[in-house]
Design a protein around this nucleic acid. Structure first.
Length: 441
RNA sequence: GGCCCUAUAGUCUAAUGGUUAGGACGCCAGGUUUUCAUCCUGGAAAUCGGAGUUCAAUUCUCCGUAGGGUCACCA
C-alpha cells in the first residue's frame, strides 16, 4: 500500500489564517495517524500577489503551532513540470491555444490555453460527504494557463499533487467546486485520482465564511492575545470534529492518537472565542512553571522597588488560576505585592457601608492579634486564619476581612487576606495595616 | 440566478429504526468560612417543515424551507 501523503497548499497572499491553520492541522493529524507524511507546498504561481513576507509568516505560524512538515516546496520552482504538462495536453489535443482579448490588460491580445472539456459528469467520493456529482459541461473549456509557459492554479495543483504523490487532498469546502475541473485535468494527463475530503468551513457569528470583517482571524492575532498554541490547536480540532468519548482537552500528540476523519462534521461551525478561552485556561493550568513564566509579561513588575524572585514565585500561582489567556494579565493585579498600594480610605468600609469607627476598631484588633504571632504562624495561612476567625465570625466576617484585605492590596478584587499576609510577611503587612489606621481620623 | 454542500439547545457536538435525546461552552440560581477568580451542586435550553417507508423515524427516502459555498486570464 502506498504511503499516505497529505499537504497544505497555502498561497502567500496574506498572513496565516486560522482556516488555513485548521486545514493544516487536519492534514497533519490524518497523515500522522496513518503513519504518513505531511507536506507544505507554497502556491506562489500568482507572482503579482505573492510575497516572501507572507510566505515567512505562514511558515513561522505553522512552525509555532508545532505542525511539523516532512517536506516543503514552492510551486514556482516546479514551473518546468507545469509547462511540460501544458505541452503534453496540447500535443494530445486535450487542450488548445486560443488567441483572445486579455482580461487583465485592456486592449491587449493574448494566447491562453484552454482545456477541451469532454463535457461529462464527474462523480468523486468525498471522505466526509460521500459521492458528489458535477456536470462539467457547465464549466466549458476553462482556462488552464495564461500562456504555454504560464500555468494557472488548477493545472499547477494537479501536476504538483501527482509529482509529490499526494494520496489525500484534504482542504476547505470552498474548494469543492474546483474538484471536477482538477479531475478533468488529471484524466487528460492520465493521472491517478487522489482521495478527497472537504472540510466544513469555519464561520463567523453571522454564519458566513470567517473573514477579516469578523475580527481576529489570523494565527498571529491569537498568538498575540496570549493563547497557547496547544489550546488554539485543541479548539480548532474540536471545531467540526469530536472524539468517541467526551474528552475535550487534548495535546497535539493526543489528537493524533484520537483523530478519525470519519468523525469530521459536514456542516460549518461558528467560531466561539468563549470556548477557546475555556480551553486555553485548561492548557495554562497544565503548563510547566517555566512555560507559564515565559507566557506572562513581567517586565513592569520586576522593576518595582520590593521585587524579589522568591516572592514572585509565591505570587505567580495565584495569578494562574484566574487567567484565561496571557493577554488578560495586568501587572496591577499583583503590583501591590511589590510596592505599597494606594487606596481610598472610604473603600475600607465593607460594601461601602458601616461605621468607620467600627472598621478602625476591627483593624486594631486584627493588628494586635497578628503582631503577637511568631514567624511560624506567619508562614502558615491556616494558622493566620485561625487566629482571627473567631473574632471575625463574631462581629461580622465581611466587616473585618474586607478592610483587612483592602488595606493590604488596595484593590477591590484580589486574593483573600490570608493568602496575602504570608507573602508580604509580618513587617510589611503590619506596616500596611498601620498606614490604613493612620488614615482613619 | 446556475451548480454544489449542509441542517440536534444561543454555540460546539453525542446517540439509536424503540433513550427521560447525552456532554461541553455560555447563561441563570445556590453553595464552597468577606470581594474577584477558581471549584461544587442545581436549572432553563434542541432533533427546520411536510409527506412517504415502517409496528415504530431525530435517524432511511422524497419534496419544501433556511443557511452556506462557488461561479477569474486569483489561489
Amino acid at each position: 500500500m502506498n504511503k499516505i501523503r497529505t499537504r497544505i497548499a497555502p498561497s502567500p497572499t496574506g498572513v496565516l489564517h486560522m482556516g488555513t491553520a485548521r486545514t493544516a492541522l487536519v492534514n497533519y493529524l490524518f497523515a500522522k495517524k496513518m503513519g504518513g507524511e505531511f507536506l507544505i507546498r507554497i502556491e506562489d504561481t500568482d507572482k503579482e500577489r505573492s510575497t516572501k513576507e507572507f510566505e515567512t509568516n505562514i511558515l513561522d505560524g505553522l512552525d509555532w503551532l508545532g505542525l511539523q512538515h516532512d517536506a516543503l516546496s514552492r510551486q514556482s520552482e516546479d514551473l518546468k513540470h507545469h509547462t511540460d504538462a501544458i505541452a503534453k495536453l496540447i500535443e494530445s489535443g486535450a487542450a488548445y491555444e486560443s488567441e483572445e482579448d486579455s482580461k487583465r490588460e485592456e486592449g491587449k491580445k493574448v494566447t491562453i490555453v484552454r482545456l477541451k472539456n469532454p463535457g461529462k459528469k464527474i462523480t468523486f467520493n468525498d471522505l466526509i460527504r460521500g459521492d458528489v456529482t458535477f456536470d462539467t459541461t457547465d464549466l466549458g473549456d476553462f482556462v488552464i494557463a495564461r500562456s504555454v509557459t504560464d500555468p494557472l492554479y488548477h493545472l499547477a495543483v494537479v501536476v504538483d499533487d501527482e509529482r509529490s504523490k499526494i494520496t489525500h487532498v484534504i482542504r476547505g469546502e470552498d474548494h469543492i467546486s474546483n474538484t471536477p475541473r482538477q479531475i478533468l485535468i488529471q484524466e487528460a494527463l492520465g493521472y491517478e485520482r487522489p482521495l478527497y475530503a472537504h472540510l466544513p468551513l469555519i464561520l463567523g457569528e453571522d454564519k458566513s465564511k470567517l473573514s477579516k470583517r469578523h475580527g481576529a482571524t489570523s494565527v498571529d492575532d491569537y498568538k498575540e492575545m496570549g493563547y497557547t498554541k496547544d489550546a488554539f490547536l485543541n479548539y480548532l480540532a474540536l471545531l467540526g470534529w469530536h472524539p468517541t468519548d467526551e474528552q475535550e482537552i487534548f495535546t497535539l500528540v493526543e489528537l493524533v492518537k484520537e483523530f478519525d476523519i470519519a468523525r469530521v462534521q459536514k456542516g460549518g461551525a461558528i467560531f466561539s472565542v468563549e470556548k477557546l478561552d475555556w480551553i486555553n485556561k485548561h492548557h495554562i493550568e497544565k503548563l510547566s512553571d517555566e512555560a507559564y513564566f515565559v507566557g506572562l509579561d513581567l517586565s513592569e513588575i520586576i522593576t518595582l522597588p520590593q521585587y524579589s524572585d522568591e516572592r514572585m514565585s509565591m505570587v505567580l500561582p495565584l495569578v494562574r488560576e484566574r487567567l484565561h489567556k496571557f493577554g488578560d494579565f495586568e501587572h496591577e493585579e499583583i503590583a501591590f505585592f511589590f510596592d505599597t498600594p494606594t487606596y481610598k480610605t472610604e473603600n475600607l468600609l465593607f460594601k461601602g457601608k458601616g461605621d468607620i469607627a467600627d472598621t478602625k476598631k476591627h483593624l486594631e484588633h486584627v493588628r494586635k492579634t497578628l503582631s503577637e504571632l511568631g514567624n511560624d504562624a506567619w508562614s502558615d495561612t491556616e494558622v493566620l486564619k485561625a487566629s482571627i476567625w473567631d473574632y471575625a465570625s463574631e462581629v461580622g466576617r465581611g466587616d473585618v476581612l474586607w478592610p483587612l484585605r483592602y488595606c493590604l492590596s488596595g484593590r477591590d478584587k484580589s486574593p483573600d487576606p490570608f493568602t496575602i499576609l504570608p507573602i508580604l510577611g509580618k513587617e510589611e503587612s503590619l506596616k500596611r495595616i498601620d498606614t490604613a489606621l493612620e488614615d482613619i481620623v
